[in-house]
Design a protein around this nucleic acid. Structure first.
Lengths: 161, 161
DNA sequence: TGCGGGTTCATGCAGATGCATTCAATTAAG
DNA sequence: CTTAATTGAATGCATCTGCATGAACCCGCA
């Protein structure tokens, strides 16, 4: 149980760290350059927009996004301040609340998707074939505890190539 | 040139972001739990220790680590404050300097490697076979602009399984 | 009813990051 | 030589993060 990693594992890890960081930076930069907020906002808006009635409890959002609790709390602060989401009281649970996406929030997410999709295409799609992308996703999935992840886009916006 | 990404590309991207984030968090947490500094420090110490005479120009370190300039400058600040590296003047170029790893820096990096390796094994090696790890590294490499990355460990510390 | 333990969420504070700017030295141009 | 453009590095300021803590509430139990 205390075995050392194989060279292949170390190499895979090194690339994972490096490449994911570089791509994340690049994609975030494209979003920012297009005048949009950061990826975390997109993810949060997407989670909310997909949830029934467009609302989630903060702790649910937290688990979907794999974020620390305080980080979620503050993300909600900012979304609320920007008018993209709102906090609503929670009738069943006095300490809790619901976070609901606003119309402005839905609209922003939809406007962001084309830019986001273009960035994904530029930095991933164009560099790797379709079947290789599937293989990559499968290998990555094997590394993940069990994190299920859906699509990145809400509705009909995914135009196939 | 404005094509939309395939679903496979989107899925690969989504997993890449999610899994790399989760693994990075997990590995960093293990290092921290073992009383060690963050991964960025390890990387910097490794880069320095591999460089000829154990020194690099800050802008070189910056490029190796894919970090913004100010971030490198401050990382060096902290390494220096911790006695792990030192800034030396640069004779040929008056505005520049050299950053040299200290003995304490080398020693720390060597002490960190076993903990780091164990974390890599736990979160990567144990979940994926050797040939799959190679495949993963290859696919990731195809996504990277051209970022060459060596091994994660300096010297003889890589004991094969 | 009242107490103890667990959940949900917010926040004060220190440290880290991003951004723009500044300074100084080198190189290039006229 | 003088001036301008470029490169290497640091820093002030606002924002963001991590960590610890605290407040409000839920539940189970005697």
């Amino acid at each position: 149980m205390n075995a050392n990693p194989s060279e292949a594992a170390v190499q895979a890890w090194a690339r994972l760290v490096r490449v994911s960081g570089a791509l994340l930076d690049a994609v975030e930069a494209e979003l920012k350059a297009a005048g949009f907020p950061a990826l975390a906002w997109y993810d949060a808006l997407l989670e909310l927009s997909r949830a029934p009635e467009g609302r989630l409890r903060p702790f649910e959002l937290e688990r979907h996004m794999l974020l620390p609790q305080y980080s979620t709390s503050r993300l909600i602060d900012r979304l609320e301040k920007a008018g993209l989401a709102e906090r609503l009281g929670c009738p069943n649970d006095g300490r809790g609340q619901h976070v609901a996406i606003t119309e402005a929030g839905r609209a922003l997410r939809e406007r962001m998707w084309p830019a986001y999709a273009a960035a994904i295409e530029r930095h991933v799609g164009s560099k790797i074939g379709c079947s290789d992308a599937e293989k990559l996703a499968e290998l990555l999935g094997r590394l993940s505890g069990a994190a299920s992840d859906g699509t990145l886009c809400g509705g009909a916006a995914v135009a196939r190539v």
